[in-house]
């Protein structure tokens, strides 16, 4: 029984860990494609959300944080974090507190040679 629970736990956690990095990199790649901070933030968050929605993850308390400055050559960081919900897996949910935190952070440089598209 413990082995079966462990298999369920590992399947859920592993599957939900993977999209964090994809979402963070998609977020950063979208953020640096403009010099306008508002547009950059909007499209970065949208890219991260779409990336996460595209994966069937069992997450809760998700947070997407975009920080940095939008000028040619400056750095923008995108951090995606959420908790994987394992509260429905008996016994192991007590050990982990019902959730497993996942976090991914990607920093990229804003396009230095691109025309100033606003």
């Amino acid at each position: 029984m413990i082995l079966i629970l462990a298999i369920a736990f590992v399947v859920v956690v592993r599957a939900s860990q993977m999209p964090a990095w994809s979402a963070a990199s998609d977020c950063a790649r979208a953020a640096i494609a403009t010099l306008d901070e508002n547009i950059g933030r909007q499209q970065a968050i949208l890219a991260a959300e779409q990336s996460l929605y595209g994966n069937s993850i069992n997450a809760m308390d998700g947070q997407i944080l975009v920080t940095g400055t939008w000028s040619p050559g400056s750095q923008v960081t995108c951090k995606v974090s959420y908790d994987i919900d394992v509260s429905w897996i008996g016994f192991l949910s007590d050990v982990t507190g019902g959730k497993v935190p996942v976090s991914a952070s990607v920093t990229m440089v804003v396009e230095p040679y691109k025309s100033n598209w606003n």
Partner: peptide
């Protein structure tokens, strides 16, 4: 293989960046 998948997803993201 879940670990392999996880590392591959990190590797893919880092290589794209």
């Amino acid at each position: 293989f879940g670990l392999v998948g996880n590392l591959y997803s990190i590797a893919t993201a880092s290589m794209k960046v």
